[in-house]
């Protein structure tokens, strides 16, 4: 175990990283929570956003424009998943996996190799692990701006159609909503944000890598779940929409802080993904087990035995 100061000095970096992954997590929130679509595209579209941004920046493209293109590239990935699901009848999870797999090749094609560097010394990057305080400020601005934009969007007629589609597609169609269209729009929007997150993450770590998106969906889900639990714990009530989005970003920060702490406690860095998977599995299982504990066959059997004995 290293000294506590080593841990403390590493935490600001976790916060910056958490904010960038928070952008991804908000994207996942749109597909997973609003649309009720378990979208595995993100493992690919994060890398696509990173690859596109790095290649554009190193070829002289202004950084804001590179991020816009990274966003659009993510949108395109979501669009493909949406078409596979709604027009070609492929189940949601498989649609995402197919796009994700295809993107692995595409990301290699974009970079021409397995990874591509972008140095903060050569380019005026928006975020970088070499300048953590600035990165935290920039990350916060991105999160707040995105949360406000989505708060607006989901308050519009178009946003209503996405929410209705995710909640009750039968009702949505009876109200004249084209649920296929709104599913595609949701996937486009969600993956656009994931692409943007990829563009930011590549800048932050100084390179884009064909494997950078592996397990991204799990980190996104972890952030959503941690944020939800934490938000309700702190505020003592169910969160409203913007609160949920902001706490999703907070969840991402907590996730990276926790990872930093377990690394400090001695977990080897190659086991962080194992740790993440277990954490998310536990968080997803707890509500189910809680419900089960109230009404289960085992309990019914026990009660039956007790009553028999009493009779």
């Amino acid at each position: 175990m290293k000294s506590i100061t080593a841990l403390l000095s590493a935490l600001p970096g976790s916060v910056a990283q958490g904010l960038i992954w928070g952008v991804l997590a908000i994207g996942v929130y749109i597909t997973y929570k609003v649309l009720d679509f378990a979208d595995l595209t993100v493992d690919g579209s994060l890398g696509t956003g990173g690859a596109v941004a790095v290649m554009l920046i190193t070829n002289g493209c202004p950084i804001p424009l590179a991020l816009v293109v990274a966003f659009i590239a993510g949108c395109a990935a979501g669009f493909i998943t949406g078409i596979l699901n709604t027009m070609l009848g492929i189940p949601a999870i498989l649609s995402g996996i197919l796009t994700q797999l295809a993107l692995y090749s595409i990301n290699l094609d974009i970079m021409g190799k397995a990874n591509a560097a972008v140095s903060v010394d050569k380019y005026d990057l928006l975020v970088s692990l070499r300048y953590i305080p600035q990165s935290i400020i920039t990350g916060t601005i991105f999160i707040v701006a995105i949360a406000l934009a989505l708060y607006w969007f989901f308050g519009t007629e178009q946003g209503f159609t996405l929410r209705a589609t995710g909640c009750n597609p039968n009702m949505a169609r009876a109200q004249g909503i084209n649920t296929k269209k709104s599913t595609v729009i949701g996937l486009v929007l969600g993956n656009g944000l994931v692409g943007l997150a990829g563009g930011l993450l590549a800048q932050y770590q100084g390179y884009s890598d064909v494997n950078m998106g592996r397990g991204a969906i799990v980190i996104g889900l972890a952030a959503i779940i941690i944020g939800e639990v934490l938000g309700e714990l702190i505020l003592g009530k169910r969160l409203n929409f913007i609160g949920r989005l902001l706490f999703t970003a907070v969840g991402a920060i907590i996730y990276f802080v926790v990872i930093q702490v377990v690394l400090w406690l001695g977990l080897s860095s190659q086991n962080t993904k194992l740790f993440s998977a277990i954490t998310v599995a536990v968080f997803l299982a707890v509500p189910y087990l809680k419900a089960q504990s109230k009404t289960s066959f085992k309990r019914a059997a026990k009660r039956g035995v007790a009553e028999d004995a009493g009779a």
Binding site: F153, G155, T156, E157, Q158, G159, F160, T161, A164, A172, Q175, G176, I177
Partner: peptide
């Protein structure tokens, strides 16, 4: 949502 049945839905307030 029901009040807009059959109408095109844009970016006006829901």
């Amino acid at each position: 949502l029901a009040a807009r049945r059959g109408e095109s839905r844009g970016l006006r307030w829901g």
